[in-house]
């Protein structure tokens, strides 16, 4: 069996200067969990989809202790579905696949979900806490409204973690020296890129909010942020799947999330 760590190499600057490129804190956490969760005799494989510069991230991963590194050579502009398909070809049969839940380029975090679908295994995404035991892991998912979901993961699964969940170990000096000449497997990824119709700086969508009410500034901030407010909107219902889906949609509409 193998444990996979998926790392996204991002060059954050417009001039594509590789000196400032790297992987996100979330991806670093994913790599750490991959190393922590591997059982004796299990291979840990770091997978990175990107240009040849991305091999620096893989060498860092080798220095930290992964047993094998694979670079999927592809254009950074391919869709996350295409990336997931390419990664799936490496990750087939893996026991655990660890991903960061966001990349340095403000990605949508969609790749882990696509990957789980491609691999046909379970998923637990957006994790803020992970407890690794011998038989099964207990993980905590972040949900809306400060809610948490505690999930037990026993079978093969894709897990995406936030950057705060773990700090990547510091590679030993011997590891760093050896990683310099380690072999990195390169496979060719999909070539069809997503056409960029329009490129604009990231702007969160505007949402109309009513003016906050309250006598004091503190009250107004509270009403604006819901901080400390009772979370009375939750209810537990038991429905069959089609009715449950309809209910979710109608509730989201009622709350203003859907137009």
């Amino acid at each position: 069996m193998t444990v996979i760590a998926c790392l996204k190499w991002v060059t954050p600057r417009a001039d594509d200067d590789d000196r400032f490129a790297g992987i996100s804190a979330a991806d670093q956490s994913a790599l750490e969990f991959a190393l922590l969760s591997a059982q004796p005799g299990e291979d840990v494989v770091a997978v990175c989809a990107g240009p040849s510069g991305a091999e620096r991230a893989l060498r860092d991963a080798i220095a930290c202790g992964v047993t094998r590194a694979v670079r999927i050579d592809l254009d950074p502009r391919v869709s996350s579905l295409a990336v997931a398909s390419a990664v799936a070809s490496v990750a087939t049969g893996a026991r655990l696949v660890w991903c960061g839940d966001y990349s340095l380029d403000r990605g949508t975090g969609s790749m882990p979900g696509f990957l789980a679908a491609r691999l046909g295994i379970g998923q637990a995404l957006g994790l803020i806490d992970v407890t690794i035991a011998d038989d099964a892991m207990t993980v905590v998912r972040r949900l809306d409204g400060a809610r948490r979901e505690i999930v037990r993961v026993s079978g093969p699964a894709v897990l995406s973690v936030e950057g705060s969940t773990a700090r990547l170990r510091r590679a030993s000096l011997r590891g760093v020296l050896a990683a310099d000449t380690a072999t990195i497997d390169v496979i060719t990824g999909p070539s069809s890129v997503v056409d960029t119709v329009d490129e604009k700086p990231f702007r969160p969508r505007a949402r109309a909010l009513a003016a906050p009410v309250g006598a004091s500034a503190l009250d107004r901030v509270r009403s604006l942020t819901d901080a400390g407010a009772a979370t009375g909107r939750s209810e537990t219902v038991v429905l069959d799947p089609p009715a449950a889906a309809a209910r979710i949609v109608s509730t989201l509409r009622e709350w203003g999330y859907l137009g």
């Binding site: 510091r170 590679a171 030993s172 000096l173 011997r174 760093v176």
Partner: peptide, 9 residues
């Protein structure tokens, strides 16, 4: 000696 684990050279 360096600041890395196993860091003597």
């Amino acid at each position: 000696r360096t600041d890395r684990p196993d860091g003597d050279l």
